[in-house]
């Protein structure tokens, strides 16, 4: 656990030192703020004190931002050879991967924390469903965690950051929209399989305020699969 934290700390420090973290947080707040408050079917349009507009916007913003954050995590270290240096220190592949995963997750949580003023503002406008807000945030965090683990997985597959980024988006888009589209186009058990695979289904059900163990298990298994897969790829060099 201590080793994981060392990596997390180091990774967070690197992202903040290289300004990536600031750029990410500022543009996340900018994008989500703009679309939540000013543009299109914004929050005033619903005529209800609800953050669901924000959650929808963040759902898409994070989808694009996370691969950009994860693409360098392993690919860069492999390319620069620092992976070799790391792995010959008393630390395991698993600890490195979990450490990096936690670092990006923490960064996302920091970004989401900074949107709490939205919550307070809307709350002051009218009666708000507190439960739905918190479960919405929980949904965003779980979704982020799932995409981070997919991003780390694709970053393990290649030495090229751009390839890692595009691959993460490619895999991500299936979970994000394609599975749910497929499920509505077919019928029967195949449909329910696609429906279960679709991340959006689970995200929606959580952000509606219903925390079902089925959804939690879904997210945890995606995370677990992604990170275990990453570990297996790193072990393959041996």
């Amino acid at each position: 656990m201590k080793k994981i934290w060392i990596i997390t700390k180091h990774e967070l420090q690197t992202t903040f030192d290289s300004l990536i973290a600031y750029i990410m947080i500022i543009s996340f707040l900018g994008f989500s703020g703009f679309f939540t408050w000013f543009f299109g079917g914004d929050i005033f349009y619903v005529n209800q004190a609800s953050l669901s507009t924000f959650f929808n916007v963040a759902y898409w913003t994070l989808f694009f931002f996370i691969p950009a954050l994860t693409m360098k995590l392993i690919a860069e270290e492999k390319k620069a050879g620092t992976m070799e240096m790391l792995l010959t220190k008393p630390i395991t592949e698993r600890q490195i991967i979990w450490g990096k995963f936690l670092a990006i997750l923490l960064l996302i949580i920091i970004a989401l924390t900074l949107t709490l003023p939205y919550y307070i503002t809307v709350w002051s406008l009218g009666p708000i469903d507190h439960g739905a807000v918190w479960s919405g945030y929980l949904g965003l965090i779980l979704m982020s965690a799932a995409y981070i683990s997919i991003g780390i997985f694709t970053s393990c597959l290649t030495n090229n950051q751009i390839v890692a980024f595009l691959l993460a988006l490619l895999i991500g888009i299936f979970f994000h929209v394609i599975f749910s589209m497929l499920s509505s186009n077919v019928t029967g058990s195949i449909s329910s399989v696609f429906n279960y695979l679709s991340l959006s289904t689970h995200f929606e059900s959580i952000s509606r305020g219903v925390i079902d163990s089925k959804d939690i298990i879904y997210f945890l298994s995606v995370i677990f699969l992604g990170l275990t897969g990453s570990e297996a790829i790193l072990m393959k060099r041996k």
């Binding site: 690197t14 992976m83 220190k89």
Partner: peptide, 29 residues
């Protein structure tokens, strides 16, 4: 690994880190 100090062939280092931070990070690891 605890008893070994290994210097890889092309001496990979974290280019963005100041020396002192890098050494502290290594020590911690």
């Amino acid at each position: 690994k605890k008893h070994i100090g290994y210097l890889p062939e092309n001496n990979p280092l974290y280019m963005d880190m100041p020396i002192i931070d890098f050494l502290k990070f290594s020590a911690e690891l």
